[in-house]
Design a protein around this nucleic acid. Structure first.
Lengths: 129, 129
DNA sequence: CTCAAACCTCACGCTGACGTCAGATGCAGC
DNA sequence: GCTGCATCTGACGTCAGCGTGAGGTTTGAG
């Protein structure tokens, strides 16, 4: 597969794929003309990269856990600590997100419930003609 | 309270507090000499700001929801949509984080379980004297 | 063989939440 | 008044994950 097809199927930009390669997350082969040639599993791999990035992992950490996520053999020795640290960070972040979501829900509820004193009508502002 | 004390109690930097003011999230009064003077509730307010930032809200959105989070009266009219959008984003992010956490747990389990073929000893690397 | 589309390599730009340094006050104890 | 620490206002630096040209090459259909 060429880069454009991978990009489309994985839902990322061509630029992103080149960036991932620069970060040593992908290593496509090259054609005689110098163009990138991706293997079959690449789309799945890119999606996993996106997921890990979305969870806030750094490129360095993605590089470390990616082989394990794709079942590509053992990981570098002694990196379990950073994984545990990262797991803790993710836990905290989930807690933060959950709390904020609850707050937002309350605010949305108040703003949507017409019987509440702080209610604002979604279309017309209250009190004005 | 002066800025240094607020910073210490809220666990943020002095620079961060000035930045929050620049973003119109705080508006401390000034002494005759021009120094910032914070009210009593400021520490709590700053912690809430941190929480909202930690959940990935932008300064603009923090500015919008903060009054509602601190029970400071109604919010600007017609901003419920952005809250709902944001809520959806947070939901997706929690899902991503949870999935990644599960992955990390699996990897950590394998790396910690001595009976697993991919096991690496936590202290000494396997296979070397 | 031609030509357009896709691809290539630099390399600078962008955004947000601050860090950091410079140089100039303000404030409190003595 | 002096000293020393806290604070002040700019204003530039940082870092990550790409976006966005510029200018040139490769590919493959016709």
């Amino acid at each position: 597969m060429r880069i454009g097809e991978v990009a489309e199927q994985a839902g990322v930009s061509v630029r992103a794929l080149r960036y991932y390669e620069e970060q040593r997350l992908l290593s496509p082969t090259r054609t005689a003309g110098g163009q990138r040639e991706y293997q079959d599993g690449s789309v799945e791999r890119v999606k996993m990269i996106q997921l890990l990035y979305a969870a806030g992992l750094s490129s360095r950490l993605v590089r470390q856990v990616l082989p394990r996520c794709m079942n590509e053999g053992p990981s570098p020795v002694g990196f379990t600590d950073s994984l545990i640290t990262e797991r803790a960070r993710i836990d905290r972040q989930i807690n933060d997100l959950t709390e904020v979501r609850t707050r937002l829900d309350e605010i949305i509820a108040v703003a949507t419930d017409p019987s509440h004193p702080h209610h604002r009508h979604p279309i017309r502002a209250a009190g004005n003609a």
